[in-house]
Amino acid sequence: MYETLEIVVAQGVATIWMNRPDVHNAFNAQLIADITAACRQLDADDAVRVVVLAGRGKSFSAGADLNWMKAAGEASVEANLADARKLAGMLRTLSEMRKPTIARVQGAALGGGMGLASACDICVASDKAVFATSEVKFGIIPSAISPYVIRAIGERQSYRYFQSAERISAQRAGEIGLAHEVVAAEELDAKVGEIVTALLQGGPKSQGAAKDLIRAVANRPVSDEVVEDTAQRIAGLRATPEAKEGLDAFLSKRPAAWVSAQ
């Protein structure tokens, strides 16, 4: 269905494979459009519980395709703005999926590739992975990816890496919070599978609500408004069929319906 992607769905898990290995899964207009459409399609599919984003070949994604960047540099401001909006929209669509998302990073995740890894809820990296916000080397800035990278590594680390464009090893990515797990290359799929198994135990609607909760609470002072918002959220969820099923399953010592359905 998608020119630049291969999508594999099995047992509630959809893997979006970026499939431009000859150019290290670099972004162009088609890849941006395909990822956006695939995320929307999978988010609307109740049979899909978890989404894994991965890259065919040696690299996860090497960022923007150089030919695409060159063409953009020769285009009008209006055309550049339209392209930038599509890239920003794709990252936001990925970030705001209701379902848990995992970046499976086996190799280079540079520029926009680091943005993709940061926009996913969870990042699992091979010890051979390498990251960078390399944009300043090309006279530009990591603008569209900045909300997600800053969220992942914090302002302090961003001041360094946005300006230096240094390569970030997998070990360093783990230290600064970009990668949740760093494992040997041959253990990458097993670790992704381990996290997927844990995610499949949770209620689908509660996981989406948990993501909304983080966005609502993060980086805000504990004000009366925030406290009331958290109370309203849990009170509303307790009465839902999913919450009732989860509690009944626990008390009955049986798998919840969403677990046994897989």
Rank of each mutant, 00 (worst) to 15 (best):
A37N: 10
E96L: 13
R151Y: 09
E245M: 09
D43I: 11
F60H: 01
R56I: 05
S59W: 07
E155R: 14
R167H: 13
L247F: 04
G246M: 08
K86F: 07
K253I: 07
A261K: 15
T197G: 09
D65C: 03
S143M: 14
I102P: 00
G107E: 02
T197Q: 13
T101P: 04
A64V: 15
A209Y: 08
P204K: 10
T240L: 04
Q163P: 01
V226I: 15
L53E: 06
V259A: 00
G112F: 08
D46Q: 14
K253N: 12
R92N: 08
E225P: 03
R254S: 09
K70Q: 14
E135A: 14
E187S: 13
S206R: 13
F131I: 05
E74D: 11
D229G: 07
R92I: 01
V8P: 01
P21A: 01
V136E: 01
V196A: 06
C120K: 03
N28L: 01
D43F: 08
E187A: 12
V226E: 07
D65Q: 03
G177K: 09
E186A: 12
E96P: 00
M90Y: 05
A79G: 05
G203R: 09
P142R: 03
S223E: 11
A26Q: 14
M1P: 10
P241V: 06
T36A: 07
A243T: 12
I176R: 06
A185M: 06
V136T: 07
A257P: 04
L81D: 12
V192M: 00
A84H: 11
V226S: 08
K244L: 13
S134R: 13
S206Y: 12
Q232V: 13
A235N: 11
A26E: 14
C120A: 15
D248F: 09
G236E: 02
S143P: 06
P255H: 01
R98F: 10
L87P: 05
S158P: 02
G208W: 14
K128P: 00
E3I: 08
V217S: 07
I150Y: 02
R104Q: 03
D127P: 02
A216M: 10
E187G: 03
A71M: 02
V77T: 08
D248L: 10
N80E: 08
N25T: 03
A117L: 00
R172C: 06
A184Q: 11
A84L: 14
E194Y: 06
A44T: 11
G115Y: 02
